[in-house]
Amino acid sequence: MTQRPHIKLELISDPTYLCGARELVASISRRLGFEDMDCSKIALAVDEALCNVIRHGYNRAMDRPIWISVWPVDGDAASPGGIRIVIEDEARQVEPDKVKSRDLDDVRPGGLGVHIIREVMDEVVYEKRTPVGMRLTMVKKAPRPVEPPALSEKRCCPTVMTERAPGRVR
């Protein structure tokens, strides 16, 4: 991914701020055409990813950096488009193929985050960053082609009028 993200947020690894990240992601997803329930699920996937970084990557240290980047994904005849979200950190590295969901038939507390992320999102890729940290790339496809917000909607929400159709990623 070479193109600049349309949104990039840096936060510290303090669970207090999970709510802000969720609201941002849900709000952007809504503007990109996702239904309310899907927006909530996308926010859940991001929340779970952040929780995993905080708990396992940073061992609950609350002052370490996490970056969330967001791109809209254009649709075409073969694909409905959607949203791409990348979460990066400077946390302890793990082998990407070791990041797996657990057996859900074993009902016990914990270990559900990776399952939820994979269940909600259409594409999920874990990678090691260079030289430190991990990168999680998640894509959710829209149920219908993503369209730029209508002009009347822009008038209602001037803070998001900078959204641009050109330059979207595929």
């Binding site: 969720r22 909530s40 507390p109 559900l112």
Partner: peptide, 16 residues
Amino acid sequence: GYMDSSGLATLVEAMR
């Protein structure tokens, strides 16, 4: 209005 897997884990623990 919202619950994540830490909330689920808490309720599973309470159920046990």
